[in-house]
Design a protein around this nucleic acid. Structure first.
Lengths: 229, 229
DNA sequence: CCAAAAGTGTTATGCTTACACCCATGT
DNA sequence: ACATGGGTGTAAGCATAACACTTTTGG
């Protein structure tokens, strides 16, 4: 076996945002074969001297004008020799998150798609996308990753809707508040929300204490013994 | 920027086993520059037409004669342009596990090293190795990955020692038993252990119910609501 | 005064740890 | 008999879910 001298390497991002009360992914429609008219994850070829993450940020900025990522994290590197029918190509997937409320300007061939109603996707992109969704769901449970889905400040009802959209199941604002406050992920801004129409008590406005990923629930079980004697 | 036509790609494995009551890693000592006399993770160059995992299994079989992996799982792909001072090279890390009790024949330049007393490691291999250890520790808590560390059957005291070595902190056999039995990871073989010297009640012998990875504790929090009405 | 939405109090439940105690065997 | 480890019983602590109830606002 000879070392493979010409293994092309691509980077691909599952860019996710909560829009219209649901989780949506950024996809662009291919014009040319292979997979003409199918939809694809944004990304492109790794260039000389680039890191994978640097390359992905460049492609997202150049091709889909997305620069406002609140989180970017590497997923699996796929290597099936036939994943690209045209030529041997490895691809490293990434999970990218955009805070709710932003609406980056997109090229004409690029659109947001609800992740529960995906069109036909090119290559192995659907697997990468579903893997990204599962990674997001898992990390919402044991880290502070919610900060990457949320705008800078929000009411608990708004945050509840974001979590419900990302997790795909109903979430109780009451219990969400207790979990996130006890873990000290949230802090009050002191402000209260002006309400649009209709009555109701004004809601306290919160923000995430930090915009850096932290693991907040490190050991589900089999924790180290407590040092209490 | 031009696509990088010659990005070499390597695969590297952190092969871990519990030996001598501690977690140990398989390393080989480099004879040549760069990093002569430093220790390195086993692995090698990706060849034409190979998958990453296939390539790694080939290298492990050829170079360190290890074929008895009970688990193999992809970790991060590293892409710093300077991680290899000689030439641009991407590397994908893997976590490989060998059941306790096996003792594969190794080439002369290859040895097991306690992961808490590592020698000088080449390239970025120490980071990959520590990342592998952390992945193992996390998955022991919420999956049945213990099966990959354990021999085909064992007493609870033996299993407790394996978990303690892998986690790096004391583990109570009593509580380990309750957790693993409630989650139905273990089943009794019906046999009891012959004891060597000294007294003591003979221990029941257990085995893992399955040798496939299963997630046994899926949601630490924020679970879907129960359907009970 | 009433509707609506936010927020708090309270209870129930389940999982884990800690530790006391009982069991089975060799010497 | 006693030492030695294996195994079970039981209570306490903690986190979460579920839901009733109170608070604050607009109409």
């Amino acid at each position: 076996m000879r070392p493979d001298p010409g293994a092309a390497h691509a980077v691909l991002a599952a860019v996710l945002q909560v829009r219209n009360e649901q989780l949506e992914a950024l996809l662009w429609q291919r014009a040319r074969e292979p997979f003409a008219a199918s939809w694809a994850l944004p990304g492109g070829a790794l260039a000389e001297g680039e890191t994978l993450e640097g390359s992905l940020r460049r492609h997202l900025a150049e091709k889909v004008h997305v620069r406002e990522l609140s989180h970017l994290e590497q997923l699996e590197t796929r290597s099936d020799p036939h994943r690209n029918p045209a030529r041997r190509e490895l691809a490293t997937g990434y999970l990218g998150l955009v805070p709710s409320g932003l609406d980056p300007k997109l090229p004409d061939d690029t659109h947001w798609h609800p992740i529960d109603e995906l069109p036909e996707l090119a290559y192995d992109h659907e697997e990468i996308l579903i893997g990204a969704r599962e990674r997001l769901r898992a990390k919402l449970s044991y880290t502070n990753l919610g900060f990457a889905l949320a705008p800078p400040s929000f009411t608990l009802a708004e945050l509840r809707d974001l979590y419900a959209a990302a997790l795909g199941h109903p979430v109780s604002a009451t219990n969400l508040q207790r979990v996130l406050l006890r873990r000290q992920l949230l802090e009050e801004t002191g402000e209260r929300r002006r309400y649009g129409s209709g009555g109701g008590r004004p809601a306290a406005i919160y923000r995430f204490r930090t915009g850096e990923l932290e693991i907040t629930d490190p050991f589900a079980v089999l924790r180290p013994p407590t040092m209490a004697h």
